[in-house]
Amino acid sequence: MGKSIEVHNLTVSYHSKPVLWDVDFELPKGKIIGVVGPNGSGKTTMLKTVMGLMKPDSGYTEIFGQPLDKVRERVSYVPQRESVDWDFPADVMDVVLMGRYRKNNLFKRITKEDRRIATEALEKVNLLEFADRQISQLSGGQQQRVFIARSLAQQADIYLMDEPFVGVDAATEDAILKLLRDMKNEGKTVVIVHHDLQTANEYFDWIVLLNTRLVAAGPKEQVFTKELLQEAYGGRLTVLSKLGDLISDTEFPLREPDFKEDQPQD
């Protein structure tokens, strides 16, 4: 089967305060995986670190057994809908076409093939009739579907989505779920950051429970237990949060300068 994502001893800080402590887990391929935990538990930080958007203080991550840079074209990322300004002058098609941008076509024009793929992606999220619509005029659910269409246009093998179900209507939720299942049936891996416990059990095959540290990771039957959920949602560990404040206040480095990370052997 093989691994999709491996996270090794990952510690990440934000404004020099650790928000993830020594997180270590592996995820399988071809599953719908939820990264679940309360607000501020480091879910988004985890995703951003896997995507290379934040630098870890220690540890490393791999996708399909390789560093991100080697497999970038097989990885797709859907940021939080609210992380961008939807008043930006662009229509739906413009945004979906961004999914076709690559390092090696940055200075080239958009091709017919790009347009064809973007059109297909829009069709899959039922937004084709909105292709010319200004993105500022979309509802929350439609905006989310535009982001997912952009991600589909990347034609990747693994999809990392940050809170795709936040603020969407019931119809969009169903549409996204159906899409995720189709993707899984095609052998794709989907990793979703999700904060809602109510729906997590229904949506995902596999769950990573986080609360600034790893609480559990595994098939949902094993992870979705009362004890583990209580541990994840029962507040942060007092020692960790005190220590984090201390490190932030004293600007103490998280690893000694001459510390050697066990790097993966190529």
């Binding site: 951003k48 995507m51 290379g52 958007l53 840079d69 970038r72 074209e73 990885v75 990322y77 940021p79 992380s83 961008v84 300004d85 930006f88 662009a90 945004v95 961004m98 941008y101 690559r102 390092k103 940055l106 952009r150 990347q154």
Partner: peptide, 13 residues
Amino acid sequence: TFNEDFAAAIGLP
């Protein structure tokens, strides 16, 4: 301008 994180995520320089 629209979405810097996405630009970085797809490996643009």
